[in-house]
Design a protein around this nucleic acid. Structure first.
Lengths: 359, 359
DNA sequence: CTGAAAGCGCTTACAG
DNA sequence: CTGAAAGCGCTTACAG
């Protein structure tokens, strides 16, 4: 009955350190010391205090604690869009690591808008955030870097933009990824290749392209590589693939800047009746979870997304404890090719074979 | 030069309300009033204060403010796993709404572990969170509901578990979804149907199944419906589809509890050489983004994921302003069937036709 | 219209 | 080993 009454009073005041102090007959400072294992406190009184805290269902107010200690045990993650499976996977790595270290994670979707990004950073700063992980829009200018640093908050950048010099970063070896994809296709005997990619002013785009081209150049017999720039999306991949189908029927293998573009290309090829991989090979980039679920399963470049996220918080926490780093730290993860069913050895183009059977 | 020096001193102290007060020659209380548009303050001194704040690049410390006002302008979202595209989409709706209303969002992945869930809730409570959105593991028992309510924090439940009575919820019409899927398949002329689904003790599973069965029952000519329970995953769908292939070759249409299971089924059918939709129709549930990218594009039940997320924060904010609600609010969103290419009109099974051509 | 005071819930030197 | 005091950065009645 009393229980029911209690319940009716919706916003029951939460018990504070004062309540615990009163309940156990000591000063709040003693309670604080007991709960935080700081300074000496008689084991017996300590037990008494802990019991009282338990009884009152006491939870320390982290805002109050943060106000005096100066850290809020909260990390911020600013990404373009959590709906992008790449970021979702990374975000999970971030959250797991953060949580494990006792930090909360506040999630911010910037859509890569510089203004929105700035707003988020300000907002995070004003809540006394302990560190921020951000995948910065386009390339970061030195003055912007200074602004970021002026907050005095540890920051780590994802997918290090080009030209960063003072901020720490964690990224993957995009160059190597492009090179792996190209080499693989070459090894399969393809000589007419195409790259479907995004705008070149993005560091990632430029690097993957560079790696891809490097593999072509290091091949003895001068294979050709066509490069199409467009939208880094499903639709972008779809459109560029159609362009390929109509204008460049000779290409037998395509590498896309990411998996989603590969999905778009796959759709176009299916519509055009060009069978993958028999008639045309496709290699993606990211190894998004879905890439193994589709038909044919996508051969792609794997990036350790989860690990990258986890590493970013590790770095952040390190930065926090050693704020006067001589130089920023850059950590880059290796990538690898995962072979599935969307690419195969080059053979003479099918239509020709079918139309002109040799007797 | 002086600039360079300043920069070297990494953790520059952020300016506080005191600095602004000193700089503009007034008391902190006046600064506070000016900045918050509360109480009267002479327009001229106000301008002076604003200018000073601007000059010092003043950002109010939200921890301090939260400590006195009692709210932290932060919302919590507890879901099983952000890597699930369904939750990613919803989370985006939540974050956008929260951000729009001036709230930060802290993201928590519970993996549906009750213990982890409880820890998150405690942690959020101790940071003075303003509200929590959570998709509760399994069904919520009344005593647990009381515990949740005892925190005095507005809470809204996602995918309302069965038996919830005091907490507000937002969910979708799972029954209707199941019904739609079944009716559609029936309308296409299929009479041997199968449902590939998860463990029945989950509310969602039970409801979709119930809706599906209801459509079957309301059909005059007693079609058959086979129900397979298994893992609600790609692999689960894959395995159950194989079981179907070997044990029940007569079924011509399958409905899966979610899209990912449908992807698994699609893979199994491809491997078994059963063409979709010509030889077997498939309908999923969720309308995950990828479902339109695969081949064949998946016919599925759409849920307004983003809107559900947005509605959840709306509800939360409402709950916050009117804490003494007489009864909890339940909001349920409608679903709809989106017709794509994975299902088609029933025809005689192909093998028979092919093997016994009629003269 | 403005300032002085009290207080939010904690922690941290500092006496004792 | 423990308590009294000061203070973190703000807001909010309350005088004046």
């Amino acid at each position: 009955m009393a229980w029911t009454r209690d319940n009716s009073k919706r916003l029951a005041r939460r018990s504070t350190i004062k309540d615990v102090a009163r309940e156990s007959g000591v000063d709040v400072s003693t309670v604080s010391r007991s709960l935080n294992h700081k300074g000496y406190v008689n084991p017996e009184t300590r037990m008494r205090i802990l019991a009282a805290a338990e009884r009152l269902n006491y939870m320390p107010n982290r805002l109050a604690r943060g106000l005096v200690t100066g850290d809020s045990h909260t990390l911020g993650l600013i990404i373009s869009d959590i709906r992008n499976p790449f970021f979702a996977e990374m975000a999970r790595g971030v959250e797991d690591s953060a949580n494990h270290a006792g930090f909360d994670l506040v999630l911010c979707n910037s859509d890569l808008h510089p203004e929105k990004q700035r707003r988020y950073i300000k907002s995070l700063a004003s809540r006394g955030i302990d560190g921020i992980i951000v995948n910065w829009a386009a390339s970061l200018q030195p003055p912007e870097e200074d602004v970021l640093m002026s907050y005095g908050i540890p920051i780590v950048l994802l997918n290090s933009p080009t030209g960063v010099r003072k901020l720490s970063t964690v990224s993957m070896d995009n160059l190597q990824g492009g090179f792996l994809a190209g080499s693989y296709l070459l090894k399969l005997g393809h000589r007419r290749l195409a790259l479907l990619t995004g705008p070149e002013d993005q560091a990632r785009v430029a690097e993957r392209q560079k790696g891809f081209l490097r593999s072509i150049e290091s091949s003895g017999d001068k294979p050709s590589a066509l490069i199409l720039h467009g939208d880094q999306s499903f639709l972008g991949g779809y459109r560029m693939a159609w362009k390929l189908i109509s204008d460049h029927p000779e290409v037998s293998a395509v590498f896309t800047h990411n998996d989603v573009m590969a999905f778009g290309a796959l759709k176009a090829f299916a519509e055009a009746g060009r069978r993958v991989p028999d008639e045309i090979s496709v290699v993606g980039f990211d190894n998004v979870e879905i890439s193994q679920m589709i038909q044919p399963a996508l051969t792609t470049i794997n990036q350790p997304k989860y690990e990258i996220g986890a590493a970013a918080v590790e770095l952040l926490l390190m930065l926090k404890t050693t704020p006067n780093l001589a130089a920023p730290i850059h950590r880059v993860f290796g990538v690898s090719l995962v072979e599935r069913q969307s690419a195969m050895r080059f053979t003479q183009s099918f239509p020709t074979q079918r139309l002109e059977p040799r007797p």
